[in-house]
Write a protein that binds this DNA or RNA. Structure first.
Lengths: 340, 340
DNA sequence: TTGTATGCGTTATCAC
DNA sequence: GTGATAACGCATACAA
């Protein structure tokens, strides 16, 4: 490969070197085109020699699709989000799409500018993992022919495709699990984020307890993360009556909570304190935590998205909310049975 | 905003509605253009009404830059990589670039196809966080005018910009730290990955020990991660003479190692066993680990990259390897002073 | 099968 | 300051 003046090689140059027309080059690199084997060889050789690569930007200009899919996400360094991106990028690549990740702060303004970017780059689809775009922004994307997929946003907006995890089911299950373990003083640890999906878990748990005649306190002392879990534990165990069962709406919260309960208040898990988390991040399986939690079927969700995107039918076809069942993961942070 | 037939709005339609020429529309959305305030207002109003957004693909076609930067990375769900992506996407966005993340398997073949994608999308730059692209692929990118930035790849290839962390310095420091703590039976836990940067840490530590007259065993039992750390600990503590000081080339390894040492062999950290990790991932600061480690100055690194990309000068300008100093983070996993 | 001509949405260059 | 026009690199309908 010869080193050229620093600019991209175009099809025309390949054509000249191969002694064929520009169209022949184009056809060689187009999937369902008809080229004779001999021309094809010549073109391929010339392309290799020149270091030619099809310009997807130009191709996307005339062709319908850019094959770009935007991922809107915040707090990427969080285990849950990171895994989501990991899986999403892999699956998207497997169907020939490429992921643009836009790191939003989750604030409305950030989300808005992110949504605008997605149409600037003519993304085929936008997958929203964090934040809640305004209906008008969503409408813009949709009217531009983009597919909009909202994950765990729960705002049942019609138009975009909604994918949710059955938080209510899981949270109710969590309550009964703690109850069955013999917990009598149960608390919920959530965050001030107010994410629809976190809120749903919190509310469903409280409701399940209420129906059972139990009033459970809810701690919300900061953003969704380890530190907030710590803070919640400090407050809960600083009270006169301390909990013997805690449902944390996120694994990260559960871990902060567990660490403080153990190290600062000498609680033993699960003997004196049962804890349940949510998400089943990698760390939940670590020996130090061994956390009972609910796994979000990220793999299935990603598969579903990919199937949606692979289908060439327009998204208009009334795609209702698709919901996935979280999978309970039994580990050692909940007492197997009630104490005598 | 009216709902149109599902396709993107183009400048021409805006021009028609605003009663101006296409050029006027273009100028309105071009930074250094001259438009009268009145035309500008009209165009903006029409654009808003139609839901117009500049097509960056088309813009990138005529203009020089696509403003796309590709991130080549594997194991995205790993805390270290995730944080890298988090910071990189943020900083890139702050200078008007957008990140395409390509999830490679790290294998040569995967890296190769990823590199090809970067030129397909005419990325302005490609940042390699995982895997080692072949020199010829790098040459292709460079000759196409792309900037290539290799992070912690250590293969001192001339051409691309190399950014490394001073692994040798840190590993040497780690050895003396353990020595000062009174450790006499020291081991290294690494992985079979053979990443240049991990290898450098491992070798430097062994060398520092050798110069000190000590022979340290190196455990390599699998990929870089928590499970491999566990396995390493099982083998180390299953021996006749067990270590009292361990240097793990990665925090994740250190955590797996620590958990097994404590829970399966009853070791107490740091009294009976001192452990040092590398990376300073979030979990290192968690109460259960409180791990002494070396922080990679990811923020400074990202700033440097952004400065590189923002500078319009061609990368030809002989950019030597830029190296960053890891920052020692003193926590509680190393005994403060030797036992009496 | 092959080549020619046209369109895709922008920006830049040029006259006005 | 404004408007026409020529690239930009590619795919494709059409004619050969």
């Amino acid at each position: 490969m010869e080193v050229r003046e620093r600019s991209f090689v175009k099809a025309e140059e390949v054509a000249k070197l191969a002694g064929v027309s520009r169209s022949a080059v184009s056809r060689t690199f187009t999937d369902g085109a008809s080229v004779s084997e001999v021309t094809r060889k010549k073109v391929l050789a010339a392309a290799e020699a020149l270091g030619y690569h099809v310009n997807h930007l130009a191709r996307g200009l005339s062709h319908e699709r850019s094959n770009i899919v935007c991922l809107l996400v915040s707090d990427i360094s969080t285990p849950y989000q990171a895994r989501m991106i990991d899986i999403a990028t892999q699956k998207l690549q497997s169907i020939g799409k490429i992921a643009m990740v836009i790191n939003t702060t989750g604030e409305p303004e950030g989300v808005a500018s992110a949504m605008r970017q997605t149409v600037n780059y003519r993304a085929d689809a936008v997958i929203v993992l964090s934040g809640t775009p305004s209906p008008s922004l969503i409408a813009t994307c949709l009217s531009n022919g983009q597919r909009v997929i909202l994950i765990n946003r729960d705002d049942q907006l019609s138009g975009p495709t909604n994918i949710v995890v059955e938080n209510t089911f899981a949270a109710t299950e969590a309550y009964h699990l703690l109850k069955r373990a013999g917990c009598a003083r149960i608390a919920v640890v959530s965050s001030t984020a107010g994410t629809p999906s976190l809120k749903a878990r919190e509310v469903a748990f409280v409701e399940a307890a209420r129906q059972d005649g139990l009033d459970v306190p809810v701690m919300q002392t900061g953003p969704t993360g380890y530190a907030t879990g710590m803070e919640a534990a400090r407050r809960l165990f600083g009270r006169a009556v301390t909990p013997d069962g805690i449902f944390c709406v996120t694994d990260l919260l559960a871990m902060g909570c567990m660490d403080v309960a153990r190290n600062e208040f000498g609680m033993s898990v699960p003997d004196e304190l049962s804890i349940i988390g949510f998400d089943d991040i990698d760390q939940a399986a670590w020996m130090s935590y061994n956390l009972t939690t609910f796994r979000q079927p990220l793999d299935s969700i990603a598969d579903h998205i990919v199937r949606l995107l692979a289908a060439e039918t327009l998204p208009q076809a009334k795609s209702p909310t698709k919901s996935f069942q979280p999978i309970p993961v039994w580990r050692g942070s909940v007492r197997p049975r009630p104490p005598r």
